[in-house]
Nucleic acid binder design. Structure first.
Lengths: 112, 112
DNA sequence: GTTTTATACATAAGAAAATTATGTATATAT
DNA sequence: ATATATACATAATTTTCTTATGTATAAAAC
């Protein structure tokens, strides 16, 4: 977990991917899901998450819907049509990146 | 190549890995080697590279040796002992990161 | 022969994306 | 009663990069 800085630049892609899989999610839910999926290796901080969600919304990639649960509010985000397309792009870029990086740091394991 | 920002945070690791493999290299050579290894996908800019090399040197991970080739100077960098250890650490962190990220963006392809 | 491209270093200004710190408020568990 | 969890948010700062600029030599192209 000393490798947090490697995740820099990948937050948007992670959020978009989660929303592609889970249809709609709220911020806190995203932090918990990421912690669960990565077995605690990646902890998304609120200072990173909320500004990122706001930006994705401002860019038209996400729609937001406010819900009240008990006495607390939740903001559910979901992909717009444009967001779905951008998700596909970003996932492709991510795959390319992972392949390239794997090849750079461990040429033996990337046979192609 | 619209995914340059994904590489943020990985420059040090890339440099160290190259020096582990190639024993000693100079800055310009590193930029060319990376371009070659990634088939042009990653282009390390001088504005990123030189400060990074200086930092690694200041941190005691690299030793530098100045060579004169014709009328031009080259600064050859190589790993110190401490640099070799740190390289191993960073490569391990990178593998962990790549595995986690693969699992996040494509659960189907990361079967473990 | 002169202009462009390549080689080789470097730094400064600015932008992007995070961390860290702080704030508000409700709900649950100890 | 107090601590932890849920749920949002923003501001200050830091890290890491891009872009722009600078110096200088060598080779290739025209």
């Amino acid at each position: 977990m000393g490798n947090q800085k490697l995740y820099k630049g990948s937050l948007q892609t992670i959020i978009l991917k989660l929303l592609e899989t889970n249809d709609k999610m709220y911020g806190y839910e995203i932090t918990q899901k990421v912690k669960e999926l990565t077995k605690g290796e990646l902890k998304i901080t609120e200072g990173a998450l909320y500004p990122a969600l706001h930006k994705l919304e401002a860019d038209g990639l996400l729609d937001v819907e406010i819900a009240k649960v008990g006495n607390r509010l939740r903001k559910y985000y979901k992909l717009t049509e444009s967001g779905s397309k951008e998700t596909a792009n970003k996932l492709e870029e991510m795959q390319e990146f992972l392949k390239t990086m794997q090849h750079l740091v461990n040429p033996k394991l990337s046979l192609e």
